Amino acid sequence: MQIFVKTLTGKTITLEVEPSDTIENVKAKIQDKEGIPPDQQRLIFAGKQLEDGRTLSDYNIQKESTSHLVLR
Results as ranks from 00 to 15, higher is better:
S65R: 05
Q49F: 13
A46S: 09
L56I: 09
K11V: 08
M1H: 05
S57K: 12
S67N: 10
Q2N: 11
I3E: 01
L8W: 15
D58K: 02
V26M: 05
G47L: 03
I44S: 12
N25S: 15
Q31T: 08
S65Q: 09
P19N: 05
G10L: 04
V5R: 00
P37E: 07
I23P: 01
Q2M: 13
A28F: 11
K27Y: 03
I36P: 03
Q49W: 14
G10D: 04
Q62V: 12
K11T: 08
V26Y: 01
E16I: 14
E24W: 15
D21S: 08
K6A: 07
Q40A: 08
E16Y: 12
Q62M: 12
G47Y: 05
G47W: 04
E18H: 14
L71K: 05
Y59I: 04
L50P: 01
K27E: 00
I61Q: 01
Q41V: 09
P19K: 06
I23A: 02
V17L: 05
K63R: 11
V70M: 11
L50N: 01
M1L: 07
P38G: 07
S67V: 15
I36N: 02
G47K: 04
G10H: 06
E34V: 14
L15V: 07
T55M: 09
Q31W: 15
P38F: 12
I61C: 02
N60T: 04
R42N: 13
V26T: 03
L50Y: 01
E51A: 07
E24P: 02
N60C: 07
I36Q: 02
K63H: 15
T7L: 15
K33T: 08
I44F: 15
P37Q: 06
N25D: 12
N25I: 15
E16C: 12
L43M: 03
L71R: 05
K48I: 15
P37G: 04
D52P: 06
L43D: 00
I44H: 09
S57Q: 12
L15T: 00
S20F: 11
I13E: 01
Q31I: 02
N60L: 05
S67K: 10
D52K: 04
E16S: 11
T22M: 07
T22V: 04
S65C: 08
E18M: 14
T9C: 14
T66R: 08
L15R: 00
T66I: 13
R72C: 15
L43W: 03
Q49S: 09
S57D: 08
I36Y: 13
T12V: 14
P37C: 07
Y59A: 02
L50D: 00
V26R: 00
T14I: 14
R72F: 14
N25K: 14
L69F: 06
L15N: 00
D52Q: 04
L15W: 01
K29S: 04
I61T: 02
L69D: 01
V5Q: 00
L15D: 00
E24Q: 12
L69V: 07
V17H: 02
K63V: 09
I30A: 01
E51S: 07
L71A: 06
D21M: 10
D32H: 11
I61W: 04
N60S: 08
T9L: 10
H68N: 08
Q49M: 13
E34G: 04
N60Q: 08
I13Y: 05
Q2H: 12
Q41Y: 14
I13K: 00
I3Q: 00
K29N: 03
P38R: 13
